[in-house]
């Protein structure tokens, strides 16, 4: 009898925690407001994918690949697409330290203005590497939520940073799968 009670207790514990886990997942619904400013950290072309996804999700979003703080005027959410492309940086006439500075100023200003940040990493494992990882380490902790493509999180970098900073992390299989969570995350 004791055993049965214990089993029921344990089962109950698992069900409740599963439900709680479910609830935790639901937390990422309606947490952001529009309009949105989408910018890149690292100038990789995935910022274009984010822009298309936002459009598909019916969100009011402006794309500015190398946005400055003055562009935050009237903005309710800042979306940062993480990923370094050397070609992209070259095209924007930026080096990695200038790019990091730009994003840092933008993030600081967003924090001052209470504009929440949503971080995306959509390029998968081919868009990782030291330079990208530095940006992830620097800016991901400032975000209120993150959506990443699974293959880019093979080593669990996103998982560990998000866990440490209590940031809800949504892992999707492909960039296109980010559409639904993105849609849900906005009011």
């Amino acid at each position: 009898m004791k055993k049965i009670i214990l089993s029921i207790f344990i089962l109950h514990f698992f069900i409740v925690s599963a439900l709680l886990g479910q609830e935790k997942k639901d937390e990422v619904i309606n947490i952001f407001e529009q309009p949105i400013l989408i910018t890149s950290a690292g100038q990789s072309a995935e910022v274009q994918i984010a822009s298309v996804l936002a459009k598909r999700a019916g969100l009011s979003a402006a794309l500015s690949k190398a946005a400055f703080a003055n562009e935050l005027k009237g903005i309710r959410t800042l979306v940062i697409v993480l990923g370094v492309s050397l070609k992209g940086l070259g095209a924007a006439g930026l080096d990695i330290s200038q790019e990091t500075n730009r994003v840092q100023i933008l993030v600081d200003d967003a924090q001052r203005k209470n504009i929440p940040i949503l971080c995306l990493h959509l390029g998968g494992e081919t868009r990782r590497g030291q330079l990208t990882d530095d940006l992830i380490n620097t800016f991901l902790p400032f975000s209120k939520m993150a959506i990443v493509v699974e293959s880019g999180n093979k080593d669990g970098l996103f998982t560990s940073i998000c866990k440490e900073n209590h940031i809800p992390l949504i892992v999707v299989e492909r960039a296109v799968d980010a559409l639904q969570p993105l849609k849900k995350a906005f009011k």
């Binding site: 990789s44 995935e46 994918i49 390029g123 868009r127 492909r174």
Partner: peptide
């Protein structure tokens, strides 16, 4: 290009998306 990237992904083809550098 972004639309194409996503369609290819849905069909199982991984590509890298790169903007043409202006310089």
């Amino acid at each position: 290009a972004a639309l194409v990237y996503m369609e290819l992904q849905m069909e199982g083809f991984e590509f890298r998306l790169e903007a043409s550098p202006k310089n």
